[in-house]
Design a protein around this nucleic acid. Structure first.
Lengths: 135, 135
DNA sequence: TCACACTACATGCGCATGCATTCAATGCAA
DNA sequence: TTGCATTGAATGCATGCGCATGTAGTGTGA
């Protein structure tokens, strides 16, 4: 029984560590990206779209596909894309095969911004994930 | 350069894993705790207070001390405590030494609920943290 | 005693999120 | 073709969050 309680305690400690790293990293990310007008979720989506490797829109993702890669609800993602579109960072275009669907792709401006911001994000990850819980 | 890029990719993968585990676990936690009227943050606070091991309020935490242990802003925590208080799960009482301060302690009802819910939370952690990214 | 800086917590406000719903488009069956 | 269930995305709504600010209490120096 005592061993079981210890195992549970280890689990709880593991979870607290994870919460701590997550909170600190998201916070740092938000702070670092804020001066570029982005938050952590925004960058996640831009990063997914940049990984799509198509500047002409042919490789654009469907909203559903983005939702599979970031941890947001469909509605939150829809609005987030709306904000990025309003800022001129992404483009929505109707999917001709399935006209319910929407294809989302980076604009040149979005691609440029992603290129600028990526090193910043990578640097934050390096600091926060490597340094350990000491932060 | 290629090695450095690989290191960065490892970092990004590590971060995506962490985001995934965090999102799935919080989601499961919220779902499991919802039927008890709690969300994950609520339980975090109850768990901190339960760790305080004082049913008479003598071991009550100051709001600041709770804030150090959970990853919420001071304002969010203040409102969360307000909700818990409204539900009769915690009590706020003025700190006599420093009347600016507030001491927060579990009510019997809160302690009972925590006891009921803790195994649920531990079970979710066991599933989500042990199973790995497969979820 | 008084003035003033500081601290602890609460609150106004705007924003992002999730759930439930809505609307349009598709696919399938008759 | 028509009718209906299903799917993809947008939207109404309620809620929780953080930032900035407000309010009350403390402590210090003159």
């Amino acid at each position: 029984m005592a061993a079981m309680e210890n195992a549970e305690q280890g689990l709880v400690d593991q979870w607290r560590d994870l919460l701590g790293v997550h909170a600190r990293t998201v916070s740092e990310l938000d702070r670092a990206l804020h001066q570029h007008g982005l938050c952590a979720s925004d960058f996640e989506v831009l990063d997914v779209l940049a990984g799509c490797a198509a500047s002409d829109g042919a490789g654009a993702y469907r909203v559903q596909e983005i939702a599979d890669r970031v941890h947001l609800s469909q509605s939150a993602l829809s609005r987030l894309i709306g904000r990025l579109e309003k800022d001129g960072l992404v483009e929505r275009c109707m999917c001709p095969q399935d006209r319910r669907g929407v294809r989302v792709s980076l604009t040149p401006k979005g691609r440029t911004l992603h290129g600028d911001v990526r090193p910043v994000q990578r640097a934050v990850l390096g600091r926060m994930l490597a340094d350990g819980p000491g932060g």
